[in-house]
Each structure stands twice: as structure tokens, then as C-alpha cells.
Amino acid sequence: MVGRFQFDANRTPAENIALFLDHLDEDQPEFAALLRANLKLVVPLPLQAAQRYVRRAEFNRCVERALDTPVAEEPKEATPRGVANEPAAIAE
């Protein structure tokens, strides 16, 4: 991940959070976008613990769905695997 992050004391909390998300964008835009898109599920944070579990599970379900949806095919390994056997004579 890219280096350390610091808040700007002269900015509002909302602006600082936006800055933080921008900072994450620089390093892993795909995951940062995923976090941004689903943040509304966990912020504001419910007061009740049980409600928090529900929101967290919902957030992770959305992330899981996105992670399992292929965006672009990953490059296949080009490493040759094994050496073909020489055909052997059939025993008479």
C-alpha cells in the first residue's frame, strides 16, 4: 500500500474521509471503489451490536459478490508443464 496517511486538521471530517478514500484510490482503485460503494451499509454505524453484525454481514456479502464477479480474465501461466512421454511400443 502507498505510504502513510495524515488528516488535514483544517478540513471537516467529511472532507477528511473523502481524502482518505482518495488516498486508497491511488493504490487499489478497484477495492477503494468497492469500499466507497458499500460504505453506506456500515456508516452511520448502528448503536446496537446485533444490528452492526447484520450490517457488516450485508456489506461483506456485497463485497463477496463483487469479488467473485470476474472483471477481466487474468493472464494464464505460460510455464510449460511436464514433458510428454515418448510413445512406447506395445508389448507383443
Partner: peptide
């Protein structure tokens, strides 16, 4: 059992198939 020698890499499906096809074509 078919060729008398084990394959160099049993995971190499192409090589295994090719060696068996070649051997069995001889009958």
C-alpha cells in the same frame, strides 16, 4: 500398465493422452 513406464508428469494431460494414443494406434 499400458506403456511399461510411468509418465514424467501425470498432470500433463496433453502428454499423457498423446503417448497413449500413439501406443494404442500401433495395434
Amino acid at each position: 500398465l499400458v506403456l511399461g513406464t510411468p509418465p514424467a508428469d501425470p498432470f500433463d494431460a496433453v502428454a499423457v493422452s498423446s503417448s497413449l494414443m500413439t501406443a494404442l494406434r500401433r495395434a
